[in-house]
Design a protein around this nucleic acid. Structure first.
Lengths: 154, 154
DNA sequence: TGACTCATGTCAACAGTATGACATAGATTG
DNA sequence: CAATCTATGTCATACTGTTGACATGAGTCA
């Protein structure tokens, strides 16, 4: 169509649309989280801990799509401010299981409500069957990308 | 299902799946662009210029989802290295129309081919009708998020 | 047992990007 | 026409996250 011999047609590119949507989602989330003094990584960390208590620093990093070094400094802040706790010594191996404090849970509740409104707005014009289809497709895409990229890179 | 009273079920969240896919795409792109000495913003800038020559710094920034300040420093590098050119004075207003040099176009060709393989891999298990559906849905989601967020923020 | 591999936590240095601020050009409005 | 508003380019600064490196704990295998 508007192809020009070189390059990828951005208007028709699923990749570009994906980045567009993801960027809009991140911006919208940051907008509602800012008044609560949080950013997206912040929130992701607490949300992960609520659903899977005892996650280690490295596991949290993977779940929030940042490096374990970045998650480490975040956890130090969250721990200092009393939102999460980690044991002084590792019960097994080197992994320190992290848990939400009651204070952290209260903080998360506000943030989670805000994020939920964003996700609802995002999905406003899309019915349930379409949502299920999109979810399946996004998972498929993620898996395809990881297959020849991440774990076993020939 | 795995809902816990507080929080959003990450396993069932379209937002999380979106972030997952977007993160996997970015990682895969960075992997193939690194050998060429480029990153994603780098590539996005050149790709935008190939399709819409004469774009200004601010327009490029919006297209690549970064601030105009970030795009500005990138453009200075690209200009210094001879991949793009900008007139010394603005023909109208303050906007400086940017263009690819032949050298920049050659550079883009390599990068674009690499990125195309990534996008193809991502869409491997998804047929054309599904792709069209996803494209439509992603656009819809982006638009819904911008409606009450970006331009006119009540 | 000892050597190897792998994952983890953490430190230091670096890169990329965002935030804040300012001056300038054009459009809008009274 | 003058005042105001909006968009742009660019600087200086701060922050967030990445890359690179190291030591430690736990499995694996000969």
């Amino acid at each position: 169509m508007s192809q020009d011999g070189v390059g990828i047609d951005l208007e028709a590119s699923v990749g570009y649309a994906l980045k567009e949507a993801s960027s809009a989602l991140r911006t919208a989330m940051e907008e509602v989280l800012r008044p609560l003094g949080m950013n997206v990584t912040h929130y992701s960390c607490l949300e992960l801990l609520a659903q899977r208590p005892g996650l280690s620093n490295s596991e949290l990093a993977r779940g929030a799509f940042v490096t374990r070094q970045a998650m480490n400094v975040l956890l130090q802040t969250l721990e200092r401010d009393g939102y999460v706790t980690r044991p002084d010594a590792a019960p097994v191996g080197r992994a320190l299981p992290t848990r939400l404090t009651p204070r952290g849970r209260r903080r998360l509740e506000k943030a989670s409500a805000a994020v939920r409104t964003v996700e609802n707005r995002m999905l406003a014009g899309i019915n349930d069957t379409e949502q299920a289809l999109i979810l399946r497709a996004l998972r498929q895409m993620t898996q395809s990308l990881h297959e020849t990229t991440g774990p076993t890179n020939p």
